[in-house]
Amino acid sequence: MLPWSGELAGRIERRTLVSERLRGNPLGDPHERPVLVQVPPGYADSDRRYPVVYVIQGFTGHVGMWDNRTAFRRPFPELADAVFAAGQAPPAILVYVDAWTSLGGSQYLDSPGTGDYHSYLCDEVVPWVDAEYRTLAARDHRAISGKSSGGYGAMVTAMLRPEVFGALATHAGDALFELSYQPFFPRIARTLRDEYGGSYPAFLADVRTRPFGTKDGDGELIEMYAYAAAYSAEPDGTVLLPFDDLGRIVPEVWRRWLAMDPVLMAAQEAGAEALRSMRAVWIDAGDRDEFYLDLGATAFRRAVAAAGVPDERVRFELFDAGHGAIEYRYAPAVAWLAERIAG
Results as ranks from 00 to 15, higher is better:
Arg142His: 10
Gly150His: 07
His141Ile: 03
Gly153Val: 10
Arg142Leu: 02
Ser111Leu: 10
Thr114Asp: 09
Arg139Cys: 14
Ala138Asp: 15
Ala131Glu: 14
Ser149Val: 06
Ala131Leu: 11
Ala137Leu: 03
Ser119Thr: 15
Leu121Cys: 11
Pro127Thr: 11
Ala99Ser: 15
Gly105Asp: 09
Ser119Met: 10
Asp110Arg: 09
Ser119Ala: 14
Ala92Gly: 00
Tyr133Arg: 06
Arg139Trp: 13
Ala99His: 07
Asp116Pro: 00
Ala138Trp: 12
Gln107Met: 14
Leu121His: 12
Arg142Tyr: 02
Lys147Asn: 15
Ala92Gln: 00
Asp140Gly: 13
Arg134Ser: 04
Trp100Asn: 15
Ala143Ile: 03
Ala137Gln: 03
Thr114Ile: 15
Leu136Asn: 05
Ala143Lys: 03
Leu103Ile: 13
Val97Pro: 13
Glu132Phe: 08
Gly151Leu: 10
Glu132Lys: 11
Ile93Met: 12
Gly104Tyr: 07
Gln107His: 13
Ile144Gln: 13
Ala131Gly: 13
Asp140Cys: 04
Ser106Pro: 02
Ser145Ala: 09
Thr101Ile: 01
Gly113Ser: 14
Arg142Phe: 02
Asp110Glu: 05
Gly115Phe: 00
His141Ala: 05
Tyr152Val: 03
Asp98Gln: 02
Tyr96Val: 06
Gly151His: 10
Trp128Phe: 13
